[in-house]
Design a protein around this nucleic acid. Sequence first.
DNA 1: GTAATAGATTACTATATGGTAAGATATCGT
DNA 2: ACGATATCTTACCATATAGTAATCTATTAC
Lengths: 130, 130
Amino acid sequence: MPTGTRSWSASPTSWPQALPSASDDIFRAIADPTRRHILDLLAERGPLTVGQLAAEFPDLVASGISKHLMNLRATGLVSAERQGRQQLYRIEGEVLSEALAPWLVKYERYWSAALQHLRQLAEEGRRLSP
Amino acid sequence: MPTGTRSWSASPTSWPQALPSASDDIFRAIADPTRRHILDLLAERGPLTVGQLAAEFPDLVASGISKHLMNLRATGLVSAERQGRQQLYRIEGEVLSEALAPWLVKYERYWSAALQHLRQLAEEGRRLSP
DNA sequence: GTAATAGATTACTATATGGTAAGATATCGT
DNA sequence: ACGATATCTTACCATATAGTAATCTATTAC
């Protein structure tokens, strides 16, 4: 499935108010809990293979993970590097942050409380594991 | 459709690795471009009625907007207040930020570039409209 | 009271999505 | 070369989703 394949074919008269953008795909990608978990694992542990990731999902078959990774790769959120017969998947965090940032600023004013809360968490975390 | 209705019924032997949480619903809610647009409008313009919102979506029928608003209300991202025969919808920005913040911190290290970019944008914005 | 208006709800449809299973491809170990 | 391993691909299925149209409810205007 190529990156931008959406049922976009026949829009006869009127256009939707917003063309589907790259960030649309990213929002859809992170909507799925399994994909978020995959991203979390890649962020925590660094690059992992399909097999290593699949081991973390006892309820999912490996090809399911592979499909999710294809999805994530299509959005640019992860990249892959062959290593012999396995494939190392790496998170592309900048793609995530740069796609989300412009949207998040719109809600900037609602972040003060959350940020304070986070700062506090970060402080505690730093104190626990320096 | 009540808030937490997911196909959760028969999980005979094994449990999925993560129970569906409130933030799952929020991620799913913001995955839809129409709902993001609704949130954007509410954040920009303040509380709006269904009719006012529907006017911004020439390709959508009003009941569609209403359904999206029900969805958003179920997640807590918007709240409603009756005003005579109309309903004023208001964004609940803290719900958004508090749901997203814990997830976003996991990718903290990827934000520096994006944040700098944002800071710059904010600076320019402040200079343009003080 | 009656008509009109604003919105919610329901029934229905088409499509998208996540998942599995089975087969294809490429690489490694012997 | 051969079998095992790792991943990708395809076909297929069940469910979720977004959308419309029609109906229902409540409120305002006359």
